[in-house]
């Protein structure tokens, strides 16, 4: 065995130069690595491994606390009495649960929370439904139908995604004034019905459906519309769910536009009403009631998130834009 080895090394002069130190290294490494050392090394690596894991969990735990703390604070503050809230040594758990804060939030002067909820729901549902229809139709046309200038048109649509929405807002504000849409639901719904991003998302999804299915349907003589309804939509259902939820969340969270165009508080959306009501110039705001209102606005979103976590995360990771 060893003879063979040395022969080999001799035969190949080139190698022997580089192989020789190599063998030495290994030999010394072997000598160093005695039985006891191996025990020590394996013990050490175990300790390091455990420490690293502990470190990771501590880091994540702290970060999770930071992330969760505002929610926690919101919840406990919403049931504290004002005097407890104002204690100089804050309490981490309310001494006394004052649920009437919620009633107060609902009945606060000038803040008709119920009406705001209703407004937001109407706007959210109507705009989501219309938006879905429009998006599906457009995405289908771009994905399956052939017409002149398709690619150019699609490219142009995509290009508009780069422009910040505020640029449109300026003129849209003028337009809706001209149309005298102020203080209607229409103004909250119509300008945002078309989302190029959703069209893009859905089109990509449609494109993945093999063309053969479409051709087969054509051969069978089914219409485009039937095909869209019976094949494409069921297949693209997950994306449609994502779009639906994101759109609803958008309606729930939108602030700037309704704040600009709705002056009648009876037609206002929840976010604007919430912020507007609790903006106090001076004096001590009633924080617990305010927090109760905030909880009421936040909870529906959490519920939606709980049920549609997967779809939300999928949609979000693609969009990068909130709402």
């Amino acid at each position: 065995m060893t003879e063979n080895m040395t022969e080999n090394v001799k035969e190949q002069a080139v190698v022997s130069e580089q192989a020789a130190p190599q063998d030495n290294d290994i030999a010394t490494a072997d000598k160093v690595m005695k039985k006891r050392d191996i025990d020590a090394v394996s013990k050490k690596q175990l300790v390091v491994k455990i420490f690293v894991q502990i470190g990771l969990y501590i880091f994540l735990g702290i970060m999770a606390l930071v992330v969760l703390f505002p929610f926690y604070w919101m919840l406990i503050s919403s049931v504290k009495t004002t005097s407890e809230y104002n204690l100089s040594v804050p309490t981490l758990w309310p001494h006394q649960f004052q649920w009437s804060n919620y009633a107060k939030a609902f009945d606060a002067d000038g803040l008709n929370l119920g009406q705001l909820f209703l407004n937001t729901c109407i706007v959210g549902i109507v705009s989501t439904l219309l938006s879905l229809i429009i998006t599906v139709l457009a995405a289908f046309a771009f994905a399956r139908l052939e017409f002149k200038g398709k690619n150019i048109l699609f490219g142009a649509l995509l290009a508009t995604m780069m422009i910040p929405g505020e640029l449109f807002t300026v003129t849209n504000y003028v337009t809706i004034s001209d149309l005298e849409w102020q203080n209607t639901y229409t103004v909250l719904i119509v300008p945002f019905l078309v989302s190029v991003f959703y069209i893009y998302l859905l089109r990509q999804n449609f494109m993945q459906i093999p063309n053969e299915l479409y051709l087969a349907a054509k051969v069978d003589g089914s219409s485009d519309f039937k095909y869209l309804w019976k094949v494409m939509i069921p297949l693209a259902a997950p994306t449609l769910v994502s779009i639906t939820i994101l759109k609803m969340m958008g309606a729930w969270n939108t602030y700037a536009w309704p704040n600009l165009v709705i002056t009648d508080s009876a037609k206002q959306l929840i976010t604007v009403g919430l912020r507007g009501h609790f903006t106090t110039e001076y004096g001590i705001p009633d924080f617990p009631a305010q927090m109760a209102a905030v909880v009421l606005v936040t909870i529906p979103l959490f519920l939606v998130f709980l049920f549609f976590r997967k779809y939300i995360m999928r949609g979000v990771s693609k969009s990068g834009l909130k709402g």
């Binding site: 969760l68 503050s77 919430l274 609790f278 924080f287 927090m291 905030v294 606005v297 936040t298």
Partner: peptide, 23 residues
């Protein structure tokens, strides 16, 4: 953990802004 870290996303930024303001 993943869910916890995603939570701030599904919030109304005005509403939670008010919580920060309170804090």
């Amino acid at each position: 953990m993943q869910t916890i870290f995603f939570l701030p996303y599904v919030t109304n930024s005005i509403a939670i802004g008010m919580v920060f303001m309170a804090m």
